[in-house]
Simulated scan of single mutants.
Amino acid sequence: MYATERQAHITRHLAERGRVSVVELADDLSVTTETIRRDLAALEQQGILRRVHGGAVPLRTGSVVEPSIAERMMVNADAKRAIAHRALDAITDGYRGAVVFDAGSTVGAIAAGLGERVAATGARLDVVTHAVPVAHTLSLLPDIGLTVLGGQVRGLTAAAVGTSTLSALASLRPDLAFIGANGLSADFGLSTPDPAEAAVKAAIVRSSRRVVVVADQAKFGVESFVRFAQLSDIDVLVTDAAPESSLADALEAADVEVWIA
């Protein structure tokens, strides 16, 4: 296979997955990892991608770059629906409790499936969220109690942030939290580009008895600008592919359950 063909393959998979792995690409294309690294270097010089530890991400995926909620909903949509379906297993038969929903497209997919899960399990939930799209979805469900936290709404994510949001979260002790992340790495933990959004995520993590993080494989190895939690702060990671060895080892050391959708 010529270099141009390999690089076209890499570019296509990057667009589909949001991240590519050197090892996986080498296996897919039956070439050495050194060959893949040269291809990634060439594509980086062309302005197509940015190399990160173990692979590459799209060029615009810098530590402070943040896509809008509308853009996120279009990326890896099938994977996010599968992750959401698996994450809802955290709500077991007859579950009783308070649940916090973070902002984000994958968490939004969980909210979209909550009504069916409640009907199937007989769960009785009091739900809290600071995310406007999630609040709208949950407001249509007749069998849950819904509290919407106020604050300054960020246009990019349609989520409330700021002092009033943080103050409200500090007074809560929910049983379960569903939370998203822009980045998930062995060394840096969980991260997101915006400091205000990170503060809210950190407050959710601190306040919740059980934290379920939902993140597709495109987030693996990504380190966004602001860390909001260590791996040891979370209980479950729900994702669409097994993490690479370094991240898998770090998750195991932190006693994090990994659920594959």
Rank of each mutant, 00 (worst) to 15 (best):
E34S: 14
I260S: 00
H13Y: 10
S139I: 11
A241L: 14
S164L: 14
A253T: 12
I144P: 04
L237R: 13
P58G: 13
T33A: 13
K201G: 01
D187G: 02
V258N: 06
A79F: 02
E5H: 13
G108Y: 11
E5T: 08
A98W: 00
P142L: 04
D89K: 14
L247G: 01
G155K: 10
A198T: 11
R86N: 11
N76Y: 02
L156T: 11
R17V: 02
L184V: 04
L172P: 03
V99M: 07
R86H: 14
V100Q: 09
V213L: 05
P195C: 11
L156H: 09
F228K: 01
V22I: 14
L149N: 02
D27M: 06
A159P: 03
T92Q: 10
A90E: 14
P67K: 03
A186L: 14
V258G: 01
V214D: 00
E5S: 13
G18W: 08
R81K: 10
I83V: 08
P67M: 03
R60W: 13
T121V: 09
D175L: 04
L43R: 02
D187T: 09
R19P: 00
H13V: 12
R12K: 10
L49K: 11
V205W: 09
S63N: 01
V134E: 07
W259I: 06
V57P: 05
S207L: 06
R227W: 04
V99I: 10
P193M: 06
D249N: 15
I69S: 00
R86C: 13
L146K: 01
R6C: 05
L190N: 00
V222C: 06
T157K: 08
M73L: 04
A42V: 08
F188V: 07
S207K: 08
T61E: 14
I91P: 06
F225A: 12
V127E: 06
L156I: 12
D93Y: 09
A42D: 04
R124M: 02
F228T: 06
L251A: 03
Q46Y: 00
G18T: 10
H130Q: 02
K80P: 11
V161Y: 05
L59M: 08
S21T: 09
A82V: 12
S167L: 06
T32I: 03
A111L: 08
A109W: 00
A198V: 05
R38D: 09
A198R: 10
D126G: 12
E34C: 10
G47C: 11
R173H: 10
L43H: 01
Q7V: 03
F220N: 00
E116P: 00
A56M: 04
D143Q: 05
T147Q: 15
V100E: 07
H136V: 15
L149R: 03
D216P: 02
V161S: 05
D28W: 15
A120W: 03
V200N: 05
R38C: 09
I234F: 08
I260Y: 06
A87T: 07
A181Q: 13
K219Q: 13
I48E: 11
L149H: 07
G62F: 07
L172K: 12
G189C: 08
R6D: 13
R154E: 06
A131Q: 11
L138Y: 07
A111F: 07
D89Q: 15
R60L: 11
H9R: 12
N182W: 05
A203P: 01
V153I: 15
V65D: 14
L141F: 08
T129H: 06
H130M: 05
V75M: 10
S30Y: 14
D78A: 15
H9L: 08
K219S: 07
I83L: 02
S207E: 10
H13Q: 14
